[in-house]
Write a protein that binds this DNA or RNA. Structure first.
Length: 439
RNA sequence: GUGGCUAUGGUAUAAUGGUUAUUACUUCGGUUUGUGGUACCGAAAACCCCGGUUCAAUUCCGGGUAGCCACCCCA
């Protein structure tokens, strides 16, 4: 027999049971908060028609899309949740209530080389707000508010949601007559954090950008201080461009709203260096980092787009959204031991009938426990010896075991054992419920 | 797409051009048929594939494949 490789493919994450429980808890926390802010769940197929995905992809992303053929249909796996959302909204336009606020926590696929914190199959936890023809700018401050709440609920204190507005740079580039070069200049600026300002400036000059223009760009990038100070300084800059002014006004409004919402200042800041590669963002952009683990990179980013579904409908559908890189976040936090998996099962009580004649009684008990919403299991492995059967509870960290044998049947009671302390006592059903509630 | 590194039981590892390939964890059985975690005894379980050099290759060389890491890009 030839040996079959039983490892999952590289870039595809598989978790151990205790890790999976932890992952699901994080996912649930995110989901609850999304619902708290009025987002509606949505699910749609992993597989789309190739033409649907490629209509919107372009450039780098196209090379990363998994494609295949079934019969004579060209298919592809979704590489994000935004494009399928666009298709969905276009398709169901008549039946949706706008602004349409939807959340989706689901897997996406990217055929690229995996590496640390980089997957081919991974979860994204998206929220988007889609408007019909228009979407008020005020919605742009809703997004950071949700994210701050989510991260707080996940137990993070030291994170920063960085906010910028693409119109600021677009306006600046128009002012400098560099709009054609804007795309690759932004790519260089995006590296600022890693390579430093000097290197970036050198590179731009080498590539033929006049030093006066480079200076002007970096005067803007170098703006430091509180959010309000940065806004004031932006207004003072000598840049004559309407789009630039609009960007500054938009950024100011978003920042003001966040303050009104009572979001703590430490959680968000204006960062003029964040550019975001994806070119469909047109206004506000977000990027979130955990400051203690900045090497992870962005764990959550998004922004405003003018027209979500222009490829699929003639309706104008502006939107704003963000995506938490759930798999990346989880993987890195687990590796760095920020979070630990300790629960191996949801089961709280294992019922262990010791002889076969206790079976009926045990089955009744397990039903009653479940009726009282206590996650319970029954172990009917009579052909195994008792120590083996108890070991099951030990391995899975089940906190309590109930023994039922001759003695218990005679007295019409149960032996409840606390697996942590090793203590056990003879109790009735009511006492089991009471003990369980105490924990 | 480009580059660097690695490949030994299920996991993590050691050694070796030559007889039975080390150790730990895990798993299974037992010491202990109404009680788990600790201890002791025992069992199962591995040299990625193809070719070359050699009397002899898990070991050296070449290729393949897979994995890890970095760049690019991104969550």
């Amino acid at each position: 027999m030839t040996k079959i490789n039983t490892k999952p493919l590289s870039g595809f994450m598989e978790l151990k049971p205790a890790e999976q429980i932890l992952f699901d808890k994080i996912k649930e926390t995110i989901e609850k908060n999304y619902q708290l802010f009025g987002f509606i769940p949505m699910d749609n197929p992993l597989i789309e028609r190739k033409e649907v995905l490629f209509a919107k992809a372009g450039g780098e992303t196209e090379t990363q899309i998994y494609e295949f053929r079934k019969g004579d249909t060209d298919l592809a796996l979704r590489f994000d949740l935004t494009v399928p959302l666009a298709r969905y909204v276009a398709d169901n336009y008549g039946e949706l209530t706008f602004p349409f606020k939807r959340y989706q926590i689901a897997k996406v696929y990217r055929g690229e080389r995996p590496q640390a914190g980089r997957f081919r199959e991974f979860y994204q936890a998206d929220i988007d707000i889609i408007g019909d023809e228009t979407l008020d700018l005020n919605f742009d401050s809703e997004i950071p508010a949700v994210i701050v709440k989510v991260f707080n609920d996940l137990g993070f204190e030291n994170f920063t949601l960085r906010i910028n507005n693409r119109k600021i740079f677009n306006g600046l580039f128009l002012d400098l007559a560099l709009e054609k070069e804007s795309e690759w200049i932004m790519q260089i600026i995006d590296k600022l954090d890693r390579v430093g300002a000097d290197m970036c400036q050198e590179e731009l000059k080498e590539k033929g950008i006049h030093f006066k223009k480079v200076d002007k760009i970096f005067n803007l990038l170098k703006l430091k201080g509180t959010n309000l100070e940065i806004l004031e300084n932006l207004k003072k800059m000598e840049i004559e461009n309407e789009i630039f002014d609009e960007g500054v006004r938009e950024l100011e409004l978003v920042i003001n709203n966040l303050q009104s919402l009572g979001i703590k200042e430490k959680y968000f800041e204006i960062d003029l260096t964040i550019a975001r590669g994806l070119n469909y963002y047109t206004g506000t952009v977000y990027e979130t980092r955990l400051n203690d683990y900045s090497e992870i990179g962005s764990v959550c980013s998004g922004g405003r787009y003018d027209n979500l579904a222009s490829e699929y409908t003639s309706k104008k559908l502006p939107g704003v959204g963000i995506s938490i890189g759930l798999s990346r976040l989880f993987d890195q936090l687990l590796k760095k031991e920020v979070i630990k998996s300790n629960e191996s099962t949801y089961t709280k009580i294992l019922i262990l009938p010791m002889e076969k004649n206790a079976k009926e009684n045990a089955l009744e008990l397990v039903s009653k426990l479940r009726d009282n919403n206590i996650p319970s299991e029954i172990n009917l492995n009579f052909d195994k010896k008792l120590p083996k059967r108890i070991k099951y509870a030990d391995k899975l960290n089940i906190p309590s075991v109930i023994f039922i044998g001759e003695e218990e049947l005679k007295k019409n009671k149960y032996t409840l054992k606390n697996m942590e302390t090793g203590k056990q006592e003879l109790v009735n059903f009511e006492e089991i419920l009471k003990k369980n509630n105490e924990k």
